[in-house]
Design a protein around this nucleic acid. Sequence first.
DNA 1: TCTTGACCTGAAGTGAACTTGAGATCCGAT
DNA 2: ATCGGATCTCAAGTTCACTTCAGGTCAAGA
Lengths: 157, 157
Amino acid sequence: MVVERYLTIGDVARRSGVAPSALRFYEERGLIAARRTGGNQRRYERTTLRRVAFIRTASRLGLTLEQIGDALATLPDGRTPTAADWRLLSQSWRSLLDERIAVLERLRDDLDSCVGCGCLSLDRCALQNPDDRAAALGPGPRYLEGDSPSDVVGEGR
Amino acid sequence: MVVERYLTIGDVARRSGVAPSALRFYEERGLIAARRTGGNQRRYERTTLRRVAFIRTASRLGLTLEQIGDALATLPDGRTPTAADWRLLSQSWRSLLDERIAVLERLRDDLDSCVGCGCLSLDRCALQNPDDRAAALGPGPRYLEGDSPSDVVGEGR
DNA sequence: TCTTGACCTGAAGTGAACTTGAGATCCGAT
DNA sequence: ATCGGATCTCAAGTTCACTTCAGGTCAAGA
């Protein structure tokens, strides 16, 4: 297998583990680009692999494609990004992760103190009053603006 | 305001911080129930507040409504769940959290060893080869409210 | 009684990140 | 030249957890 200068969408898919349909989707969203052959087929530069790697990793960390796109947009225009460029981008993940971990740990501690009572009391239970909703854990509540159920009355007993 | 025996959907919404539409949706999914007035309006028992609290918290932890429904289905039928019942249910969150935290910490450690090289090399980079994709961050955070693109870009100005 | 705000249903819309399908074209190997 | 797997586009479908809308009903206070 000769090392080609350009990669087909299938090549990129195989090497990055991302489906062709996803690659086309990324392109549609402006996250990656490709030149075309005379027959309109995509041909990717090898640096696209790194770009896709970045996208997948950031995605794993919970960033939206839009955020990732914004980040990618800060890469130097016109020249192939260097290792230093990527490093700069990646470093911001560190604090994001630390923050994410902190939120989960806080939640765990709250859980420990709540499990003892089995309460889930609406007004007292820390689990029920997350001021840090924003820090999120996954597919979180969509709308939730900071409504404070302060008038909440725990159930009897 | 007299303490009523039954709560309207508006009451439950205000006290739980969950929108009426969401409550109807939960009912549709079999997560909560309500009796009806002659005019077909919902009237909730007060214990529904606790049930909703459970749903929201579990949801925050990243469980799907289906999983939550399965959990709720294990509650004793016919009698009002006791504190012990809820405690039992909540305890399962503990290991879920521990697991979630472990995944993130591993990711952070990987990041530490990768950031030094700025590589994101497809074959070597640990971040790129997550054998535990499945375990991960839940069904995949859709959007994270506190993240602004600037979190990603870092202060690279 | 009237009025107004709360409530009802069922259907459709939302957004994120893709996938699937249909129908047509491309291109490398034989 | 031919064949079949790879690609193309565009539209529509999928999942999750809801929200929004349209068109109508209920219920409690003045």
